[in-house]
Design a protein around this nucleic acid. Structure first.
Lengths: 146, 146
DNA sequence: TATAATTCCTACTAAGAAAATAGGAATTAA
DNA sequence: TTAATTCCTATTTTCTTAGTAGGAATTATA
């Protein structure tokens, strides 16, 4: 079952970008600092997101990253799909090879769970996440929380 | 995010036991054969289930295992709780230490997903799973499907 | 009472994936 | 021309899950 740091960090990066939508490009370093994430790791995550059009990047001095479209138009599902593929619960797509599948009594359950999760992810936009916030206001200090 | 083979194998073992409820104790070997699972691995999984009362065991010759209560009264949540603990999605209980939690914009999402999954697991009993079946009838041959 | 079938228990090993790091190439504003 | 930045790919580290091994304890039954 997969919803790993890739998706979590990726979502946090996107949230950070959403909070600065229409404020010009944001450097990876800044994003990493604000969300207390490892820069070099984000570097890897940013690329597929860019390829998928969820992020636009500007290279060189004063470059950086920004959302490819508005926070209302980006769901967490979009992010996850890019970063993990869309098999989350077991036996959804992960093991098309499993010979037991045709007579497996448990597959319905995993499939149902998979659908629920996807539904939830599809219903959640970046806009919604930053609107709700985390309770307190986001701070700027490093906090090392990973 | 956790819904690993432990839970999946465990669920299949329980399903197998449910299918033979009230037919006396069933040997691990038999269960493993029917569900094409590694015996020695099941051996580890069976113990916590027994401790939790979901399984009753009889030792010695002609011993084996059986459900601790009826298939209608056992949910997959019961199984999962024993085998994984009840943190499934990230940031639910897994990282109570994360300093970012108070101002994390994404936690609501993971918590919501966690709830959905748990709800689904609680709504699914062994009885329901074997009633629905897998489509075709379960076979008896080894199939090696893992 | 001896034997074989079985569960019980604990430790160990292997494999794989996820997480993180490293280092340099390419690009570009100033 | 330089410094700031993204881009790219490879490598290493860490960790968890998955699986194996071997023997102790228990018990039906011959």
């Amino acid at each position: 079952m997969k919803l790993t740091t890739r998706t979590r960090y990726g979502t946090r990066m996107m949230v950070e970008l959403a909070k600065h939508y229409h404020q010009g490009p944001m450097r990876l370093n800044e994003i990493a600092r604000r969300q207390a994430l490892p820069v070099k790791y984000l570097e890897q995550i940013v690329m597929p997101l860019k390829d998928a059009g969820l992020i636009k990047s500007i290279r060189g001095v004063r470059g950086g990253h920004m959302l490819g479209r508005s926070p209302e138009e980006i769901t967490v599902y979009d992010i996850m799909k890019v970063l993990e593929g869309d098999a989350i619960a077991p036996c959804s797509q992960e093991f098309p090879e499993c010979e037991r599948l045709p007579y497996c009594e448990t597959k319905v359950l995993w499939q149902r769970i998979n659908e629920k999760i996807i539904e939830e992810l599809k219903n959640t936009t970046l806009a919604e996440l930053i609107e709700q916030g985390g309770g307190r206001e986001t701070n700027t200090k490093q906090s090392g929380g990973r």
